[in-house]
Write a protein that binds this DNA or RNA. Structure first.
Lengths: 205, 205
DNA sequence: CATTGTATTGAACGGAAGTTCAATAGCAGT
DNA sequence: ACTGCTATTGAACTTCCGTTCAATACAATG
């Protein structure tokens, strides 16, 4: 009673898409082969045939998830801004608003994050991905510091990049269970309040 | 074949302690009645007898966890610091170092956080708890802003408190899977770099 | 058209989960 | 000592999980 045959890569893609849907709806821990196969209109056995094991299915989902995560790209209009701190702020704003625009991906990523605590393979994938993410902030941070080296003695580009990422992650965590209460603009305003002083020195009254 | 009888509150406490141990070792999702009962040297049925349901056991564990979380208390030597920003920084430092000193509790809290995405009761408990946490930063933040109102027009005490909490949570997330690589002091130095300028105006060269 | 390979199915299996429950044993009160 | 209450046990039940596998039908090859 087998159904239609489909070339392998498309089948994998179809099953992965179904896996994503299930994981987005029920969370990673309730993502079972049965549910995935039902969502993909496919037999449970076929899922095993293509992915060998549940664990490997989830690892493939993580790859899928990270692959389609757009790398932090500073678009032209941002890089045209004259002030280094304005550039950093603009990027922060876009990253933070991304949190509310794709909540499912955020939740799923954090599900994997928690799974990574106990699974070395997951942990490693996430570690390298977020190292890359943090690294993408580094040039921005370096520009900011270079603009006023004497005011931030002891602050390294990596440190500033790390704090930037921390703020974003903190917002992500907050928005995850407090989505409606969490005001991105308000939060950003405060962050900007801190960052502003990385730019030209304010006139001291 | 029943064993010794134990007054109810002690039994509950004993089982909760065992639940904590299991959850700390295996994570919230692998915290099963069977494992808990084994860890408590008790029959599975007794766990059900005292907690009705697995879900209620976990809710009780969450209460247990939040109850024994020390409220953010600014100790005397911190409140003796003359500079408002120094006080905020000192509190930040202590909170961040707490992340690495009790990693198990952090992980477990985040496990609940993720569970809260899909469970309203858990979500509500966490929401109020962290609202209280954020609120405890408010007076500190207000002092900082009051010291230099003209420099931070538009930044509210709530906003600054929120960013402070975001930084801490972001560090927590980071440290969870990158514990050995994550340098608290380096990270804090950068955060302090931002915060410093909330204090007395630096002499502009 | 026959053959071969393989994608596909669906039933089956073993295990572990949460929950239920009749039986039992310890304790308090009389 | 007896009675009654309840904490406690451990087995049974249902369900669902991941996984295995023999049977099957489709597609390409000859």
């Amino acid at each position: 009673m087998p159904g239609k045959r489909v070339p392998e890569p498309e089948r994998r893609e179809q099953i992965l898409a179904a896996t994503y849907d299930v994981a987005a709806e029920h969370g990673l821990w309730e993502t079972t082969i049965l549910r995935v196969s039902a969502a993909a209109n496919v037999s449970p056995g076929l899922v095993m045939f293509h992915f060998e094991t549940r664990r490997q299915l989830l690892l493939a989902l993580l790859d899928h998830l990270l692959a389609q995560t757009t790398v932090l790209l500073v678009d032209p209009e941002v890089s045209a801004l004259p002030s280094p701190s304005d550039r950093l702020i603009a990027v922060l704003r876009r990253e933070m608003s991304r949190l509310t625009s794709e909540p499912m991906r955020i939740r799923l990523t954090f599900d994997f994050w928690m799974a990574g605590v106990r699974d070395a393979a997951i942990r490693e994938k996430l570690r390298t991905e977020f190292a890359r993410y943090r690294a993408s902030f580094r040039p921005l941070a370096a520009d900011v510091l270079r603009a006023e080296p004497e005011r931030f003695a002891g602050v390294t580009p990596d440190g500033l990049a790390g704090v930037s990422v921390s703020i974003i992650k903190g917002c992500a965590v907050q928005s995850m269970i407090d989505a409606e209460h969490f005001d991105v603009e308000d939060h950003l305003a405060a962050a900007v309040g801190l960052m502003q002083h990385l730019g030209p020195a304010p006139t001291v009254g």
